[in-house]
């Protein structure tokens, strides 16, 4: 690796580090705003996902990774979602107060 690419790479990592630290400040600041629950959760998770994406794309070099790695990660992500959705969905009425649990039943409940 030439010196120039090494310098460029190092700079890219340091820039990413700066962005990650800035986002950390944002997360903490958001939590002091005392917003209602739903936007707090959504914002906190959005910022966390953004940070995770930065780490994955730049530090873990997922940007420009090979198809096999993508395939494995996509499969894993889908399965995590399946687990979350069905696990919480099975108890949706109690957890979210929906009438979803017996949506298919007819007649009076």
């Amino acid at each position: 690796m030439s010196d120039a690419t090494y310098q460029a790479e190092t700079r890219a990592y340091l820039t990413t580090l700066g962005a990650l630290l800035a986002l950390t400040v944002v997360t903490v600041a958001l939590s002091y705003l005392d917003l209602p629950t739903a936007p707090t959760v959504a914002l906190a998770l959005a910022v966390a996902s953004l940070k995770a994406a930065l780490v994955a794309a730049v530090f873990m070099h997922l940007k420009g990774e090979h198809a096999l790695v993508y395939g494995t990660l996509v499969l894993t992500a889908v399965l995590v979602v399946v687990l979350f959705v069905l696990l919480l969905g099975a108890d949706a009425d109690r957890l979210f107060g929906t009438g979803f649990g017996d949506a298919f039943s007819e007649g009076p409940r």
């Binding site: 997360t27 903490v28 958001l30 939590s31 707090t40 959760v41 906190a44 998770l45 910022v47 966390a48 940070k51 995770a52 780490v55 994955a56 530090f59 873990m60």
Partner: peptide, 22 residues
């Protein structure tokens, strides 16, 4: 080793808001 270490970092990035801030 780096990929593993970044993963540990990513887990913490989620643990931090979920356990401390929300």
């Amino acid at each position: 080793a780096g990929l593993y270490w970044h993963f540990v970092d990513v887990v913490w990035i989620f643990l931090f808001p979920v356990l401390y801030l929300l």
